[in-house]
Amino acid sequence: MRPTPRPSDFAAECRTAVAAAEAAGALLRARFPDGFAARPKGALGDVVTDLDLLAETMVVDRIRADYPHDRVLAEESGDSGGEGGPGRGRTWLVDPLDGSNNVVIGLPVYVVGIALCVEGAPVVGVVHDPVTGRTWSARRGAGARGPAGPLAPAPRPPSPAGPLLAWTQGHAVRRDDPAVRVLRHALELRSRRLLQLWAPLVAWAMLARGDIDGFVGYRAEAIDLPAGALLAREAGVVLRGLDGAEFTAGFTGPDTDRSFVAGRPEILPALLDLVSAATPRPAGPPHSRTTPRTTS
């Protein structure tokens, strides 16, 4: 059995990710909101800008310079090669501009996200906000950090108006998907606010800081899930699947394995109850919420 890597094993990788994200952020900040061109990406309403491409090249080149044998998967260019090094199974995930749709309409809600996964599980996660210049980072087992030091939001009593939640769904999810409509409507009815930011990594950073109470994702995108989930988990957030089982924020496998409920520990039971009541159950024998399931 491969030994579990120690947190200190990834200090250098975290420094590389922070430096790359902040360099890309400086580029994005200098060109926002007017210095770029945009074009449609796919048939589902997504967009890509030349800022995505420039920032991605900058990040990938930095990772390649420090870790030439590692595999790199980037949002726009895909797999740039590498096999994770001999026997190491290391893959970097790069989202150079999470929030491209916001950028195109002049909304300053976007971040740079980078993760390193070993054997499919995130061990380093970095989120950088070019607008404010703030960076949040995490290493597995070593906690999460922000500009002011360790992230450890204090528990707070539930609001009588309901929790403050964020929502995300993958690009492949149809707008008329009945499961999405039921689940999102239930969350909107029972929460104080349900934020839909078009930038999941922004929501993950907010959750890790304690600005919001919970985050629900339905068939989330693979490229940004590991960085955000690791940041939140290392800050004390609890992650579960929609069925309440343990959730591993990996990037492989079908998107049906990337639906999640994440929340502050004091509100997670109520949030799981709400999600459970609004989630259709597959046919078959009943199972306990605590039954582990495998996610990729």
Rank of each mutant, 00 (worst) to 15 (best):
R62Q: 14
D46K: 05
P33C: 04
R88Q: 13
D34F: 06
Y110E: 12
T135V: 12
T91K: 02
G143Q: 00
P96C: 01
E119F: 04
A138D: 14
V60S: 09
S77R: 11
V123D: 00
V111Q: 12
G125Y: 00
P155R: 02
R62T: 15
R62K: 07
D70T: 11
G42K: 06
L116W: 07
L54S: 13
L27Y: 12
V104E: 04
G141T: 06
A142S: 12
G25Q: 07
A37M: 05
A152R: 15
V111K: 05
G78R: 07
A65M: 09
E56Q: 12
Y110P: 13
D70Q: 11
R134H: 13
F10R: 07
C117K: 01
V72I: 15
P86K: 08
A21T: 13
R90W: 01
E22T: 15
M58R: 12
A19G: 10
A21I: 05
R156P: 13
D98Q: 09
E13W: 04
W92Y: 08
V47N: 05
T57A: 03
P33I: 10
V112N: 09
G45L: 06
H69S: 12
A152S: 15
E75M: 01
L73F: 10
R139Q: 08
L73V: 15
R134E: 15
A65K: 10
G113V: 11
G120T: 09
P155C: 02
G35R: 11
E75G: 05
V111I: 08
E22S: 08
V103A: 13
W92T: 02
H128C: 02
V123L: 00
G85Y: 12
P147R: 06
A55Q: 05
V111S: 08
M58Y: 01
R64A: 02
G89Q: 12
W92P: 09
V60R: 08
A38Q: 11
V18A: 03
D61P: 11
A115F: 04
Y110A: 13
E119Y: 10
L28Y: 07
A38F: 11
D34L: 03
G85K: 09
E13M: 06
W92M: 02
G125I: 00
P108L: 00
V94K: 03
A23E: 15
A144E: 06
S80Y: 07
V104M: 02
V109P: 15
P96E: 07
T57L: 00
V124E: 04
L93M: 01
T91R: 03
